[in-house]
């Protein structure tokens, strides 16, 4: 097992923890946090490949991909904060199972 595989295993494990969190918890915030973990796991992969793969034609691609991913995560966080607040306003809790209606 080389370093790259170790990194990939780490990111797989992180991804699965995020997956389990997202699937098992019913609190909207925790579900979204699980998704955020999965996103980070994916970013880990980009950096791992950038660091350990042989030098290619675009040396900074992995880094740039992660930068964009972080920017998107920031945008996503803003949207889901708004979603959680809207959900809370409608049903006075943030249980995901009860959010079954598209209309308040």
């Amino acid at each position: 097992m080389n370093m790259l595989q170790a990194c990939l295993l780490l990111s797989s494990a992180l991804f699965c923890i995020g997956l389990v969190t997202a699937l098992s918890r019913s609190n909207t915030i925790l579900v979204l946090l699980g998704i955020e973990i999965m996103l980070n796991a994916a970013n880990l992969n980009f950096i791992a490949f950038w660091r350990f793969s042989p030098a290619g034609s675009a040396p900074a691609t992995g880094v740039i991909f992660v930068l964009f991913s972080i920017a998107v995560a920031a945008a996503e966080a803003a949207v889901w904060l708004a979603l959680v607040i809207a959900l809370y306003r409608h049903q006075q809790n943030i249980r995901l199972q009860e959010a079954t209606r598209l209309k308040g």
Binding site: L4, Q5, L9, S12, A13, C16, I17, F52, P54, A55
Partner: peptide, 24 residues
């Protein structure tokens, strides 16, 4: 489900011959 996904991923990662360049 998570464990299953991890198993699949781990096997895939370990079985794949990855071309690395640790000297970089």
């Amino acid at each position: 489900g998570g464990a299953a996904v991890f198993g699949v991923l781990a096997v895939a990662v370990l079985r794949t011959p990855l071309d690395t360049n640790p000297a970089k």
